[in-house]
Design a protein around this nucleic acid. Structure first.
Lengths: 140, 140
DNA sequence: TAGTGTCAACGAAGATCTTCGTAGATCGTC
DNA sequence: GACGATCTACGAAGATCTTCGTTGACACTA
């Protein structure tokens, strides 16, 4: 198994690391509030799980997120898609859009995405690889 | 608080109830495999939580899903949207579509949805600016 | 009526998640 | 060198989730 799915608390921490970059326990703690050792413990567990790495050069260790935000989003979404949408990404997207606000720019992005998806339907890019895992990212 | 978010196991059970309609513990158990009393216990807990109701007329009680599939999907999606996508439904939808297969029909549905969303953006729905919404607001 | 099977109820165990207190090491300062 | 602040490590408690064994009630039947 590549990386475990982060728990809600772990996701909170990852979000801090994605936004602020590598950080100490104290920095995370100050961003999120609550007990200092709570985040120490969580970060230790996350390091065991492989969700973060740490540098022990200084006395206050520096933690870095391992998976990118993109990867985690894809993973969590794949999970929910399987569990609640019968594996249909489109049904999920439909549900996401149906009662919530989006900007014009986002709508334009989505149209472009639909165009792309439709184009790729005609060009057989790969087999029926419907794995729920995060797949390889096309490096830009 | 309306209804709690179903746990993964509870969601499995709800999916059976949505697909098959009201069912006994045995029916759920036969659909999902595993120990009989596991589902008995889960359904009892779900009844306490309000996720299902039950009819005790017969010796084998009949359980019914309380929230619709639609409602649960919306709820779980809203949760994930907040936790992992900074509240952006469009970003979530984009991520859902970017590496997964959808049918032409689903893509057409999505385009229609985008059209609708965009139309609703332009039509202020009523003369009054009843923006009882969450968007831009000067702090009080 | 004794035996077999099905049912709900209950309790408990194990896993995971979250939180925090305490202990011990280290650093800076007086 | 003593003191206080800061840090890691460790353990444990409480909550939730999942699973299952046992018990007692009930029903069918030979």
């Amino acid at each position: 198994m590549p990386l475990p799915k982060p728990t809600p608390s772990e996701l909170d921490i990852l979000r801090v690391l994605w936004r602020h970059g590598p950080a100490t326990v104290r920095a995370v703690h100050e961003q999120l509030g609550g007990g200092y050792t709570t985040y120490l413990k969580l970060l230790q567990i996350m390091a065991e799980k492989g969700l973060v790495t740490r540098t022990e050069a200084d006395r206050a260790h520096i933690y870095r997120a391992v998976p990118s935000e993109h990867e985690v989003q894809t993973s969590l979404l794949g999970d929910l898609m399987q569990r609640a949408f019968g594996g249909s990404a489109a049904q999920l997207a439909l549900r996401a859009l149906e009662s919530r606000r989006s900007s014009r720019e986002e709508i334009a992005q989505l149209r472009a995405m639909l165009d792309r998806v439709e184009r790729e339907m005609e060009a057989p890019a790969g087999g029926l690889d419907t794995t729920a895992d995060q797949s390889k990212e096309k490096k830009a």
